[in-house]
Design a protein around this nucleic acid. Sequence first.
DNA 1: CAGGCCCTCTACCGAATGGTCAGGACAAGG
DNA 2: CCTTGTCCTGACCATTCGGTAGAGGGCCTG
Lengths: 220, 220
Amino acid sequence: MADVNARGNTRELVLDAALASFGTAGYDGTSLDDLAAGLGIRKQTILYHFVSKRRLLDAVVDRCAGDLAAALEEVLARSRAEATAATSAGPPAGGPSSSDWDRVEDMVKVVFRIALERPVLLGLLREVSRPGSPGAVRVRTHLEPLMARARRWMEDEMAAGRMRRTDAQLLLLSAYSTVVGVATEIEVLRAAGVGPTLRPVVRRRAELLRFLRSSLDPSA
Amino acid sequence: MADVNARGNTRELVLDAALASFGTAGYDGTSLDDLAAGLGIRKQTILYHFVSKRRLLDAVVDRCAGDLAAALEEVLARSRAEATAATSAGPPAGGPSSSDWDRVEDMVKVVFRIALERPVLLGLLREVSRPGSPGAVRVRTHLEPLMARARRWMEDEMAAGRMRRTDAQLLLLSAYSTVVGVATEIEVLRAAGVGPTLRPVVRRRAELLRFLRSSLDPSA
DNA sequence: CAGGCCCTCTACCGAATGGTCAGGACAAGG
DNA sequence: CCTTGTCCTGACCATTCGGTAGAGGGCCTG
C-alpha cells in the first residue's frame, strides 16, 4: 500500500510495522508475507535486512529496549543533576531521603508516560514476557542489567538507612509486572468499548507509587 | 507418551491439554499435532471430538467459563444465605451495607483462589483477552452476562444508598484486569527465577479490595 | 451372526509459512 | 565502459499446518 519509501529507511519502516504486529497479533500470529504486504514490499526484502524472522524480533526488542533504557538514563541524569544542585545549595542534612524518593517517582512517571505514548511497546513486552516465547531471553538480557543496577542502588540506600529494608528484587519485579499489567488493562478496556480512558492508568500509577512509598519511605 | 486412556475420557484429556497449551504457548503457538503427540494420540482423534481447532478453543473457553461461573454462583448463593440468616436473626437496621461488602469480598477472594489454584486458567484468559484473538468474542459472550448482572446489582445498591456512587462498569473492568494482570505477574516472577511466591498475589488482592472498599463503602 | 455405533487410525490434500538462490535496477567510482 | 556494492525482487523449496476421506476395530443390541 503506502510504500512511501524515501530510500534508506526501509529498515526502520519494517521495524515499526513489526513492532506493531508482534505487539498485537503476537510472534506466531505475524507472517512475514502479511508484514511485507502491509508495507508494499516483498517478504524477501525483510529477510534481506533481517536474516530471519527470529532475528527480526530480536532487532525489534533491541530497539525498544534501547529506547526505554535511553529514557530512563535521561531522567536519571536529570534527577541526579537536580539532586547534586539541591544538596550543594542547601545543607546535606536538609532532607535525608527526599531526593531518593523523587528519583524513584521520576522513574515510575517516565515509564508510565512511555507506556501511554507508545502502547504497542507495552504490547510487545507483554507478548515477549511469556515464558518460552522467542525473544524472552533477549528481553531478559536487556532488562537484567537495569534491574541489577536498580537493585544494587536500592540495597545501598537501604544499607545507608535512607530506604526501608525490603526485598529489592521482589519490589522491582512487582513494579515491572504492574507496568506490563497496564497493557492488559488498556486492551481489556478497549475491547469492552470503553475509550482510551486515562483514569485507570493514573490509578495504577498512584497505586504503584503508594506501594513503593510504603515499602521504601523510612519515615513510615 | 503417557496414553493412560481409561476409555471415554479422551475428550476431557484433550480439553485439559489444550487448556494448558493455549494458556502457555497461545492459540497460534499450539499445533494439533503436538497436542495429540503429547497425549499419545493422533491429531484426527482431536478433530473427531472437536470439529476444528477453532471449536476446540471454544470448548476450552466454555468449560473454563463454566467452572468460573459455577464457583461464583456457589459463593453467591452461600453469601446470600448468610445474609438472610443474619438479617432474620438481628434487626434489619443492624448494619446497612456490611453484608454487601462481605459479598463483594467473598467474590474477590474466590476468584483469586481459583487464579492461584489453576494458573493455566489465567493464562488462557490472558491469551484470549487480546483483541482480535479468536475466542475473544467467545469469552466476551460468557463474561458479559456476569458483568451486566454485577453491574445492575451494584447500581441498585448505589441507588439504595448502600454503596457509594461510581462508574460501576469501569470498576468491574478494573477488577477484571487486575485479576488478569496477576497472570502476568506470576509468569514474570517465575521467569525471573523467583519461586511461586504467595506474597505479591496476596498484595494484589489486598490492593484490589482496598480499591473496591474505597470506591464502594458509603462510610468513607 | 449381522448391523449399527462409537472411537481411533492411516493416508492424503491444499494452503500458508519461513527461508534459499540467482538475478535485476541503480548509483558510485575507477 | 565496466566494475562493485547496495537494495530489492521473482521463482522456487521444504516443512508444517488445519482439515478431509475412508477404513478398521471394539462393543452393544437384535
